[in-house]
Design a protein around this nucleic acid. Structure first.
Lengths: 190, 190
DNA sequence: CATGGTGTACACCGATCGGTGTCCTCCGAG
DNA sequence: CTCGGAGGACACCGATCGGTGTACACCATG
């Protein structure tokens, strides 16, 4: 029965917040959010302290799925190089969908100028996690400078996300993986 | 006398729009813009059709200076590789300033979701210009695939801009130029 | 001096912002 | 059955949004 009972107001709010703020930006109104979620404004303010609070919660909630999407399905049998390239392959795959508007965490970091904003804090967390993952793979892959390579990869990742999300670039010809391959070669990752 | 007379309301508005929308985002209010510019709201609506219009105009106005900043001071005596690296050197130089918040054109593309928005159109123009410049240098430099290299460079450029602007990364150790060097080498640019 | 353009000051418009107060219904636990 | 909490409906708050209407001051040109 758990699978058929409808989602809680909290979950509906978090889903709506994720969807609408991703599509329209963080400046989306709470009125529209609540309407989309089918939840009264009153209920949302009993579940969350503020709009900023709910936005941060919705970003945090999406993190596991976001990371899972970028993680190689069979990590044990894959090389570090493969696991790194898988991330960018997934990025390229996702970017062709019409719903794609770039990495939501980067978008928040760009849109929300205040670094103290709860959503900014969560977004930085997400980026830090990805950086760590890259660094770990870089180390395992025998990169000459794992930290440098990880930062380079994130440069490409965020550049590709932003440009593909803004429809200024499309990654359909493996632009990201091609670029990353060159960086991996230069870093000595086998 | 031309040098000492104070700027026109139009110029003051465009300057204020560029400054405030860069610092606080495009959602800055026109009230604040006019206050900052020392121009009445009425005057601004006689000079521009709408807020969007003025925002686009302010972005367009900054384009020459923006491009000049990224252009090698002595193009004739520099190699294509040097001219490309100069762009990223300037990016790194600018990114350390406390006022830096990333490439304003990329920020607009991320913040303004509507691609038909006049500001989006201007921002895409700016990015297209930079892409062309990179492509031209790539061709002159003998890159194996000039178009590919140019797109790769823009990936790094925008990634570095966004991350440095959001203070998630700092380019003070030549991260961008190092990355670009690897890509230039891989592309066969001498 | 008269005229017209440029600009300011300021009130105002309806809409929306984030957030709250109030009262209602529904439903499960006691 | 009663009670209390969860949630909805809806009016309301002051502030701000983009934009306009109106009246007045300044100043260069005629």
């Amino acid at each position: 029965m758990t699978s058929t009972q409808k989602a809680s107001p909290r979950d509906r709010l978090l889903d709506a917040a994720a969807r609408l703020s991703y599509r329209d930006g963080v400046s989306i109104g709470i009125e529209a959010l609540c309407r989309e979620a089918g939840v009264s404004k009153r209920s949302m303010y009993q579940l969350f302290e503020s709009k900023d609070d709910m936005l941060a919660a919705s970003l945090e909630r999406r993190m596991p799925a976001y990371q899972a999407r970028l993680t190689h399905p069979d990590p044990a049998s894959a090389t570090p190089r493969e696991r790194i390239l898988y991330v960018f392959g997934q990025l390229e795959k996702g970017s062709v969908e019409p719903e794609y508007h770039g990495c939501p965490y980067l978008a928040v970091l760009v849109e929300v100028k205040d670094p103290e904003h709860p959503a900014s804090v969560v977004a930085r967390e997400a980026k830090e996690t990805l950086l760590s993952a890259f660094r770990e793979e870089a180390e395992r892959g025998g990169a000459r400078d794992p930290e440098l390579l990880a930062r380079q990869l994130l440069l490409v990742f965020d550049g590709a996300s932003a440009r593909a999300g803004a429809r200024v670039e499309h990654l359909d010809d493996a632009l990201a993986t091609t670029t990353v391959t060159a960086l991996l070669d230069a870093a000595g990752v086998r």
